[in-house]
Design a protein around this nucleic acid. Structure first.
Lengths: 149, 149
DNA sequence: TGTAGATTGTTTCCTTGTAAACGAATTTCG
DNA sequence: CGAAATTCGTTTACAAGGAAACAATCTACA
């Protein structure tokens, strides 16, 4: 009944609810990221934004946002912050002057090469509770769930 | 190169990164929740909190927070909001007067019975891109990843 | 016993992210 | 062509959530 410790708590049907499990998994992963990578150059959101710009130079801000599920209002702030730190360059293309094309500065590329190692090492580590095969299964299922290739 | 549409964007190794996929999956699920359940009584966070109190009457605020990965500062606000709406009762137990024991009001139980149907129907629906078997596999893998049962 | 340390919840301040209204540019379609 | 609708990014105002400092209480142990 009145649970005194987390282990005693009864979650009932909730424990089988996909959305609930996804939320917990995401929170846990993020918490561990900040524990283990306190002095990293970039936060996960920043890293992914820089990564995608790096691999898609000249990408438009809106396209980047759609792909990473970042709302426009927030993307504006994110990009400004990256620009202020000299990591990202904004360019207004001639053929559509409402849009913004994003590029990495050369300094940022150097930093990203370092950050890449740390980031993907962490991504390896968080799979630890699962076997190699299970991590692969989870990857496949999540990609299918998301409609990614 | 300079991707014009989301489909053209190259995510590279990122597409296989567990933390990244979890974040996208969670964002997508949450977005769909608010699209489909605009006029629901409770938001997902509120529902889960009320649900766990319902099934563990007298649970302590800190234990609830640990189980649902909600930080104390935030839990204070959440509980106050629920209390202000007459859904939750706070009680200071005699044996530890720092703690707070939470209980559902009778009115809240009625509301939860209605909300339960809607909530778990949604949870069913979001699995749609996957087969029954795959949803079950995903559940199992996520629970193992989280160290649950 | 009594005092140092840990725990519980709260407050304050800050970061992250969203919704809505907006201006500028572009597209659609009469 | 030219007016209406749409798109892109920004601004503004706000909600969700977290970190740190704090008061009250409890625990451990000299």
């Amino acid at each position: 009944m009145a649970a005194r410790s987390p282990a005693d708590v009864d979650l009932g049907r909730l424990e089988g609810a996909l959305g609930f499990l996804l939320r917990l998994a995401q929170l846990r992963t993020q918490a561990r990221f900040f524990e283990e990578n306190a002095e990293a150059d970039f936060k996960p959101g920043e890293f992914t934004v820089l990564w995608v710009i790096w691999h898609n130079p000249g990408i438009r801000q809106s396209v980047l946002g759609q792909k990473l599920m970042i709302k426009r209002a927030h993307m504006t702030k994110l990009v400004r912050s990256l620009e202020d730190r000299g990591l990202v360059t904004r360019r207004i293309p001639e053929d559509d002057r409402r849009a913004v094309e994003l590029t990495l500065s050369t300094g940022a590329e150097t930093q990203m090469k370092r950050a890449e190692t740390r980031f993907f090492a962490f991504e390896e580590r968080i799979g630890a509770p699962l076997s190699k095969t299970e991590v692969e299964q989870l990857n496949v299922l999540l990609r299918k769930f998301l409609g990614l290739g």
